[in-house]
């Protein structure tokens, strides 16, 4: 565990240090990139519980990411147009804590619904079902003209957080970073808890788990719900970063990218998504600057990781090919 801890600490320091340096050097765009990485890492941390620890290959996590985004978009849209929400006649809001709460609750409920239906199957059928639910939500968002349909929703000013000026890039970054670190800490606790150990056991040997009286279905469902809630929170932050949400956040390519983040960094590693997100954002920025066809290089890198470096970046740095969790 020693080397992986050092790598993890280095990643945490790197992700904090770069924007602090950028603030000192007066490069706000670098801070925005770091914020993007922190938020994508958060989404990856959410997915990693289902994908890594639980072994549930969900090709539909964009649903939760987009749901969080739309929670932000819809609440802020009603607040900035001074119209009540369609249900219960409540006003919209520009307050991040409220938006986050709505996103987390919505993500958890949606994950409970999709999980309860999809987790009855396994293997390829599970992958296909999550993909299909994702497409369903995507088309549903496209078909909602009240909330922008295909064009999505823009908000004029970033939402507020009590005591902070979220318009300042550094303060918004620190907020996202704090959320990420808190969630990673919680995930470490979850993975070490009896529930986390049973979940890992459900991946490694469901028959044995069944034999000792635990029920894999319930464990997986709980993991899926937590995973969906965290990814939805990341979605709300991501939409706030861009001040924009559109159905593309719900597209299956987004689901694919979330998996890419987890796998590039290292599946089932605590800081895997952090490493993956930093890597993805860096590649996107620098290769995207060199050539508009940078995704060829991303594809090649991804292939190389899948075929030859199965532990991802953390596996390569921390020296053990497969995580023992």
């Amino acid at each position: 565990m020693g080397r992986e801890r050092i790598v993890n600490a280095a990643l945490a320091v790197l992700l904090l240090g770069v924007p602090l340096w950028a603030h000192w050097a007066g490069e706000p765009f670098t801070i925005t990139l770091a914020t993007r990485a922190a938020i994508l890492a958060l989404a990856g941390v959410g997915l990693n519980l289902a994908l890594g620890t639980g072994g549930l290959v969900s090709l539909g996590h964009a649903v939760f990411f987009g749901l969080g985004g739309y929670a932000m978009g819809i609440l802020a849209h009603h607040a900035q147009t001074f119209t009540p929400l369609p249900l219960w006649d409540l006003p919209g809001t520009k307050s991040m804590p409220v938006i986050w709460l709505v996103a987390i609750t919505g993500g958890a409920l949606m994950a409970a619904l999709i999980g309860a239906l999809s987790l009855r199957s396994s293997g390829v059928y599970f992958i296909m079902l999550t993909l299909a639910f994702g497409q369903m939500c995507f088309y549903f968002a496209v078909s909602s003209p009240t909330y922008g349909g295909e064009d999505g929703l823009s908000i004029w000013v970033r939402n507020g957080f009590p005591g902070l000026n979220t318009l300042d890039p550094l303060q918004f970054f620190l907020l996202a970073y704090a959320v990420l670190m808190a969630v990673i800490w919680a995930m470490a606790r979850i993975k070490a808890s009896p529930f986390g150990l049973a979940l890992a056991a459900a991946r490694q040997s469901p028959a044995r788990l069944d034999a000792v009286g635990a029920r894999p279905f319930r464990l997986r469902l709980v993991a899926f719900v937590i995973s969906g809630a965290v990814t939805a929170l990341a979605g709300a932050l991501f939409a706030d970063l861009n001040r924009f949400v559109s159905p593309s956040m719900l597209s299956w390519q987004t689901s694919g990218e979330l998996i890419v983040i987890v796998v590039l960094g290292g599946v089932a590693r605590l800081y895997g998504p952090v490493a993956g997100a930093i890597l993805l954002v860096t590649l996107e920025h620098y290769l995207g600057g060199i050539s508009e066809y940078w995704q060829i290089a991303l594809g090649a890198a991804l292939l190389a990781v899948v075929l030859f470096a199965r532990g991802g970046l953390i596996g390569a740095l921390a020296g053990r090919p497969v995580a023992h969790d």
Binding site: G123, I127, V260, V263, Y293, L298, L303, V306, R310
Partner: peptide
């Protein structure tokens, strides 16, 4: 011989390469 996750990822990578290659 790999699990479904590896297959999904590797073929997703192929999509990126083939789509961008065709665009190029």
């Amino acid at each position: 011989a790999r699990d479904h996750l590896d297959q999904v990822l590797a073929t997703f990578a192929l999509i990126l390469i083939l789509s961008e290659g065709t665009r190029w």
